[in-house]
């Protein structure tokens, strides 16, 4: 029982780390423009595909040594994923959200749904093709799941710790979250753009008066969220072994739940919320007795948790930025 608990603890934390990486994107953007970037799940998906494309462009290496894989291949794939996701996120902001900044609140949300559907379909239809020319020989199409490359040293590797079996991708995800959190902390607290971001989220008008370029800050917020989502995309690929154009929908919804759980607008909250959500899911499938404890219900429990939090503690676990509309 204790071993099972620790096993699920590790499983839950690593799943939660994945949610946390995505959740940061929701929270940062919401904190600044009060927009639920519905398409953020798709940014995560595009990050995964970006990493996959990088691997293809590197000549689909499969026999690199563990050291080269970890020190060269994996970082390159992460960077490739980031380039793709950041570019998409920035373009989305520029063309779909920025023109609607003074529109009624429903407008950007509906636009975001459009972006989400568009990006999914774009990847499904055009991945591995050159538009108007045809398919690129040897590239898979994305109409069904695409196998994610295995990275020597991570994929399929496990560590035995007492009675607990830990998958290497899980460790990678947790490590990625730790590194990302440190970077994020440094960015927010120690860089000019980061502090401008905090200032803008506190009071955009005053920030503007203080000479902060709010447009640029908003772009930065989208970019930071997208970069972390790309890391999550790679982690997802390593964890499940394949990626597909639909993966962003559920993951995005869960990550949003995590962001709300931690208190939307609160960066630390997103990380905590992600971990808590992952744990809750893992524990629910283990410790809820009977049929409702089967893994088929785990998403339901996650969403029930979302609704409970919104009802009883809408400011989240760590407290959200309160928007006073009175």
């Amino acid at each position: 029982m204790v071993e099972l608990f620790f096993q699920q603890l590790i499983n839950g934390l690593s799943l939660g780390a994945l949610y946390a990486l995505i959740a940061v994107g929701y929270t940062v953007v919401y904190g600044i423009v009060q927009l639920i970037n519905f398409a953020h799940g798709e940014i995560f998906m595009i990050g995964a595909f970006g990493a996959f494309v990088t691997w293809m462009l590197l000549g689909r290496p499969t026999d690199w040594s563990v050291a080269t894989s970890l020190l060269v291949l994996l970082p390159l794939m992460i960077i490739g994923g980031m380039v793709a996701s950041v570019a998409t996120a920035v373009a989305t902001e520029r063309f779909a959200y920025r023109p609607l900044r003074n529109a009624p609140r429903l407008a950007p949300l509906i636009s975001a749904i459009g972006v989400s559907v568009f990006l999914q379909e774009f990847v499904r239809l055009f991945f591995g093709t050159i538009p108007f020319v045809g398919r690129i020989p040897g590239w898979p199409d994305a109409k069904s799941a695409v196998p994610f490359p295995s990275i020597p040293g991570i994929s399929g590797q496990t560590i035995q710790l007492g009675g607990v079996l830990i998958q290497m991708p899980a460790i990678f995800t947790l490590g990625a979250l730790a590194v990302s959190t440190v970077f994020l902390w440094y960015f927010v607290n120690r860089t000019k753009t980061g502090r401008a971001m905090v200032a803008t989220s506190q009071d955009p008008d005053t920030a503007r008066l203080m000479g902060i370029n709010v447009d640029r800050v908003i772009v930065a917020a989208f970019a930071v969220g997208a970069a972390l989502a790309a890391v999550a995309g790679v982690a997802h690929g390593l964890r499940y072994g394949n990626i597909d154009f639909r993966m962003g929908f559920l993951a995005g919804l869960k990550a949003f739940t995590a962001a709300v759980l931690g208190g939307i607008g609160n960066i630390n909250g997103a990380v905590v919320g992600g971990l808590v959500l992952g744990l809750a899911e893992a524990m629910a499938t283990t410790f809820i007795p009977g049929q409702f404890g089967s893994s088929a219900w785990k998403d339901v429990w996650a969403f029930v948790l979302l609704i409970l939090v919104l009802v009883f503690r809408p400011q989240g676990l760590l407290g959200a930025k309160v928007v006073d509309r009175a």
Binding site: R105, L253, V260, A296, W297, V300, F303, I307, V311
Partner: peptide, 29 residues
Amino acid sequence: VSGDYLAIVTLAFGEIFRITMNNLDGTDG
């Protein structure tokens, strides 16, 4: 709760509905 949250909660509810209908099959429920 505010309007934005409502959008997501209803979305989550839609998913809960679909998954529940899938699971009420005699095995998982």
